[in-house]
Design a binder for these strands. Structure first.
Length: 311
RNA sequence: GCCGAGGUAGCUCAGUGGUAGAGCGCGGCCCUGAAAAGGCCGGCGUGGGGGGUCCGAUUCCCUCCCUCGGCA
């Protein structure tokens, strides 16, 4: 019998953290975070990490594992997460992967094509070529070396065009060739994916509440402290941090940054939902206004026990 | 009460006698080493209400309502 891994996902501010806590207690799980920003130390308020109280009474893995000045990406995450998941299973517990990063989830479940890390130098060179020789140049080049990938990538999507070219130049084979070869956890484990869902207006109200709370908890001081030091490119893209930088630089007033953060969080939540909707393996858990995290966890427990869905 | 300005998308506003746009917002989508990132698509509308002129009114005229300034 294959061991089971449970994913609890959902848009930001949908209540994953608390729900996961109660669910973990019920199913004898340890939590493995599935989040690209909570890995960073000292970004606590900014990323709404689970409280110390929660973390003290239940193991939460992959939170606070990277210093703020280090770059981080999907493959780092995958390496660390797979290791943790195996450890948890070895202890006889259930890994409960909790987070909102759709790509991170997919990379765990479905795999990644390995051995082609980013090459910043090459990227810079390609980027500059694109600047000098016009926007269509890089895309044209991609069409030559990898027509299949070019078909999938929009001509304006510089980031993906450059990545595809990068892979081609480093490995000598097109990225579309590698993308077909991925093996993930789904081969070896039973996977259940639960996604928290609530009416959009309620979710947005929740987001607004959370952002206001961040301000009263001291997000400004935290951001100020972080921006004083050397900070990696990846960490600097956290919602809240980039907006507050604008506030410190005098670009926005206090109420404008607040709004900006709320809005960018909404857009982020919308993108997350698009990602999850596409994944047909997901089992949706609708959350209503009056539901407490404990009750939602109870409902999920019922779903998990009720029928063993194979993935 | 009088004078002036104005009521067009969720918001701020353009424009035209042939049933309307822009920015922001909002919605949908894509995604394999920056993913809290990056990219694509979509106008979502009782043109304040009512009447009139006209083949045809959001546009011109009348009237009422509302908002904002000034004078009382």
């Amino acid at each position: 019998m294959k061991k089971e891994i449970v994913f609890l996902v959902g848009p930001t501010a949908s209540g994953k953290t608390e729900t996961a806590f109660f669910l973990a207690k019920k199913i004898n799980a340890e939590i493995v975070s599935c989040d690209s920003m909570q890995v960073y130390r000292r970004m606590d308020i900014l990323t709404s990490k689970p409280s110390l109280l929660l973390r003290d009474s239940l193991p939460h893995h992959l939170i606070n594992v990277v210093p703020i000045d280090k770059e981080y990406d999907v493959s780092c995450y995958r390496r660390q997460a797979v290791k943790k998941i195996k450890e948890v299973i070895k202890k006889g517990k259930v890994p409960l992967c909790v987070g909102g990063a759709g790509l991170y989830m997919s990379i765990l479940i479905d795999g990644i094509f390995p051995h082609c890390p980013a090459d910043e130098g090459l990227r810079k060179r390609l980027y500059r070529q694109g600047q000098v020789r016009g926007s269509g140049y890089l895309y044209g080049k991609l069409k030559e070396v990898d027509p299949e990938a070019a078909l999938k990538i929009h001509p304006h999507d510089k980031r993906r065009i450059i990545r595809a070219l990068e892979v081609f130049f480093i490995k000598g084979k097109p990225i579309s060739y590698f993308q077909k070869r991925r093996r993930g956890l789904a081969d070896k484990y039973r996977i259940r994916i639960l996604c928290l869902d609530m009416p959009r207006s309620e979710l947005y109200a929740q987001i607004n509440r959370r952002v206001n709370e961040m301000f009263s908890r001291g997000i400004i001081a935290e951001a100020e402290m972080l921006l004083e030091q050397k900070i990696s490119k990846t960490a600097s893209y956290a919602i809240g941090l980039k907006e507050l930088k604008g506030y410190f630089d005098g670009m926005y007033s206090l109420s404008e940054v607040k709004e900006k953060i709320k809005q960018n969080t909404r857009l982020y939540a919308k993108r997350q939902l698009t990602w999850f909707r596409k994944d047909k393996r997901i089992e949706w858990v609708s959350v209503k206004g009056k539901d407490t995290p404990r009750r939602v966890a109870g409902r999920i427990y019922g779903m998990l026990m009720g029928h063993k869905q194979k993935v």
